[in-house]
Amino acid sequence: MDGSTIFIKILLGIGLAFNVLGVVALYRFPDVYTRLHGTTKCTTFGSIFTSASVVVYSISKYVTTGDPRFMTFTIHVIIAIFALLITNPTAAHAIARAAHKSGIKPIGIVDKLSEEKAGEKFS
């Protein structure tokens, strides 16, 4: 039980907690947009933390064994993290726009976008 194992456990715990919160958000929130809020943020953050624990694990393996395979492993995991970080918000944005264009009204007190579109139709 050295320092890196404890660090890995802490990172994994944070990541798993946020991932599970993402699932809870998907069941609790009332409409598409609020669900997107919960899932996009929580799962991106959680997946980054679980992957970061894998990075710490492979770096500690590299330090103890000196095998260059673990260095490759680290680089590939970091590339995967950046892929998630770039693609996730873009996909969320695309889904939100598609949902709005297909005519799903958001639950809430104000909807500026629908007002703008209605105004354009009249004029």
């Binding site: 958000a25 929130f29 929580c42 909807d111």
Partner: peptide, 12 residues
Amino acid sequence: VITGKINPGIVR
């Protein structure tokens, strides 16, 4: 998520 307090809408 835990408390369920939301007040959503779209702003410009």
